Amino acid sequence: METLFLDAIALLKQLIAIPSFSKEEDKTGTVIEQFFIDKKIPAQRYLNNVWAINRYFDPLKPTVVLNSHHDTVKPNPKYTKDPFTPIEEDGKLFGLGSNDAGGCLVSLISTFVHFYDKENLSFNVVIAATAEEEITGKNGIEALLVHDKFSASLHNPDFKNNQNQWFAIVGEPTKMQLAIAEKGLMVLDAVANGKAGHAARNEGESALYKAMQDIAWFSTYKYPKVSQWLGEVKQTVTVIETENKAHNVIPATCNFVVDLRLPDCYTHEEVMDIIREHIQSDFKERSIRLRSSRIEVEHPLVKAGIALGNKPYGSPTCSDKALMPFPALKCGPGDSARSHTADEFIFVDEIKGGIETYIKMLEIMGENL
């Protein structure tokens, strides 16, 4: 365990020292590849995604994917430390991506190393260090799971149609609590239409006032269904603008943007149907990829986490969990409140505890499969 922990800290320090903004993760991908080479573990790469499978992988057994990302956001402008210099101080490891989600990633990699060459496991283990999570990009976990090279590595060319025994741990900072459900995301671009006119005369039809009426509806409407784990639909208007900037012109159009967080009791399509019934503005969705997701409380992986004293909850934020076609549990060391903050850090003991908890969780799960 001590070796796993020290290797994890050393790897995280290497990753922190290399800028790896979304779509620019090639160098950290190479570091992760080299880590596996040094461990004599065969690893493969597609784009900036690196993965490996356990030595005794059996396509007939259930498979758990250990997944986290190695891309980061750009550093907060209020950093007082160099975001690319890993600094260990007072039990904390500082650096960009240390908490989100480097600590999770290296903990999961160490967990994979622990199980890699164990015979007679009741399950398979796949490690996937992926890209573009911070921008929900299409060249991260989503691209990897459908790529022929990935299917071939699993000795399962029909993997795309045979995922009923697959599930995942998605490493994000949750203090090792169990995010079994996650809200989906939908962004709407809306436009209210009026008629231009001169503000000094009684003419025109203000698109801005029409938009205000619809925005008032978004701010007050309560959807009837409420999710046990994820609560209510949350809809927030975040942007509003008109094309003209003259003070004396009644605007003919007014554009606004709505951010919607959807629980598992509504589909994106159901919510859009309700919105159409209530507003006069036209709108279109930017994307419907990020659906709400849930892994059942009775799943052996979740039950194992609960047996260790961790609690299930519903998460309001999205992760790569939303892009997986099989059940996934979001769980990892660190605190989401530190993500994207200046002088980001993770406690080194959180990483050690994360490795220990992941291993125990999978061992308990394996006994109950």
Rank of each mutant, 00 (worst) to 15 (best):
300 P>V: 04
93 L>F: 07
316 P>N: 11
67 N>G: 09
218 F>S: 06
268 H>Q: 14
364 I>F: 13
49 N>C: 04
83 P>L: 06
186 M>H: 03
43 A>G: 01
232 E>D: 15
153 S>I: 03
3 T>M: 06
44 Q>D: 02
321 K>A: 12
224 P>S: 12
146 V>G: 01
166 W>N: 00
46 Y>P: 00
306 I>Q: 14
198 H>A: 10
243 E>G: 15
61 K>E: 05
282 D>T: 14
62 P>H: 04
363 E>L: 07
286 R>Y: 02
115 F>K: 00
91 G>Y: 10
198 H>M: 11
184 G>V: 03
60 L>I: 07
262 L>F: 11
236 T>S: 14
242 T>V: 14
282 D>E: 14
197 G>R: 04
24 E>P: 04
125 V>T: 12
252 A>H: 11
78 K>R: 10
133 E>Y: 09
52 A>I: 03
29 G>N: 05
110 S>C: 02
36 F>S: 05
50 V>N: 10
271 V>E: 09
221 Y>H: 15
262 L>K: 05
315 S>P: 03
140 G>R: 09
25 E>V: 05
336 S>Y: 11
112 F>S: 04
96 L>V: 08
348 V>H: 08
271 V>N: 04
136 T>I: 09
234 K>R: 15
368 N>A: 07
344 E>D: 05
221 Y>L: 07
256 F>L: 11
362 L>N: 05
